[in-house]
């Protein structure tokens, strides 16, 4: 019998295949290499780039995006997509801010605002599963709905001046380390473990690989997708609270293009629109890479307005490299 499987695919125990696809593979290694190279280049051009203060600023600025990307990775592995993040972030921040300024105790204000955010996630989930609507169009619509609510409620006047305990959500330190780092670390560890080792993680990969086959094998495909949308909306809502706490004000423009940056990071980190692919570590490395790249362009004196042109180019390169690699392997992606 001839060998029908390419030698590179021979993996008798499956151990390597499992680790590289679900935890840490070549893609993640390349990203770490790129991050190191980028830092070395920047160190030659502008040594101050590597100054602790600058790196710290980059890290703090991207910590919540690392939290968000974990949710996005789950969604994209399950072959779904969410543009509404920005809207949810801003809406939840504004709702919580208005309630607090109106005299509602901060924990209740936060809970109510998160519930509103979860509502958007629920709409996303119901539309895309029960009603079988296109996720791009659905979440584009809910993005604008949430955005509109944030702007409508503030009417141009942003609430500010929140209770100290609320501000602590974004500003306190634990053992001298800013609390947002703990959020990012928790999201990374929990997300990576759930995706690679639990039934939910396996179901997510299965749904992304073949939704119908998954349903016929008894996987609750709707619940899997619904959960992913809901968790992501809650992560976005939490991010909205943190942003509001850090600004000590809630503006409908606290998050701008965060959705695009995070989706870009997930794609650079190995997620595919076709679903069934991606790792949590890859997504977090993607956020790190995107943040470093964007801030190095600023350090290089490139005007901030060019950020997204550069980011768009990077996404094209990342997706293009994938397509090229697939072609070289002789297997074109069906989607």
């Amino acid at each position: 019998m001839t060998a029908l499987v390419a030698p590179a695919q021979l993996d008798v125990t499956g151990r390597r295949s499992f680790v590289t696809r679900m935890i840490f593979g070549p893609r993640e290694a390349v990203l770490i290499g790129l991050i190191v190279v980028l830092m070395i280049i920047m160190w030659f051009i502008e040594p101050r780039f590597l100054a602790l203060a600058n790196l710290r600023a980059i890290l703090i600025g991207s910590a919540m995006e690392m939290v968000l990307v974990v949710g996005v990775v789950f969604l994209m592995v399950g072959k779904m997509f969410d543009l509404s993040l920005d809207g949810v972030i801003n809406m939840v921040g504004v709702v919580a801010g208005l309630l607090m300024v109106g005299g509602v105790p901060w924990p209740i204000a936060c809970a109510a605002a998160l519930a509103a955010g979860a509502g958007i996630g629920l709409i996303n989930g119901i539309c895309t599963t029960t009603l079988n609507m296109n996720p791009l169009m659905t979440t584009l619509a809910t993005w604008w709905i949430a955005r509109g609510i944030a702007f409508g409620l503030t009417q141009g006047i942003s609430p500010y001046g929140f209770p100290q305990q609320f501000v602590d959500i974004g500003y306190s330190r634990l053992a001298g380390i800013p609390i947002v780092y703990y959020y990012a670390l928790a999201a990374l560890v929990i997300g990576a473990l759930v995706l690679a080792f639990t039934k939910y993680g396996y179901d997510t990969f299965a749904v992304g690989g073949n939704r119908l086959a998954s349903r016929l094998r008894g996987i609750p495909t709707r619940r899997v997708t619904m959960t992913a949308f809901l968790v992501l909306a809650l992560l976005a809502g939490f991010t909205g609270l943190v942003y509001a706490a850090r600004l000590n004000a809630a503006t409908p423009q606290a998050a701008v293009n965060v959705n695009l940056r995070v989706i870009a990071a997930a794609v650079i980190g190995g997620c595919a629109l076709a679903g069934g692919r991606g790792t949590v570590i890859g997504g977090v490395l993607g956020v790190l890479f995107v943040s470093l790249l964007l801030s190095s362009t600023l350090v290089l004196g490139i005007d901030g307005v060019w950020q997204y042109t550069i980011l768009g180019g990077v996404i094209l390169v990342a997706v293009g490299a994938d397509a090229l690699a697939a072609k070289v392997r002789g297997q074109e992606d069906l989607e």
């Binding site: 499956g14 295949s17 499992f18 696809r21 396996y202 179901d203 990969f205 299965a206 992304g208 690989g209 073949n210 086959a213 998954s214 094998r217 008894g218 996987i219 679903g275 069934g276 692919r277 069906l334």
Partner: peptide, 13 residues
């Protein structure tokens, strides 16, 4: 399910 290994597909779900 595409992008899943043989073992993962044998047990799928």
């Amino acid at each position: 399910a595409e992008n899943r290994s043989v073992a993962e597909n044998v047990f799928l779900g």
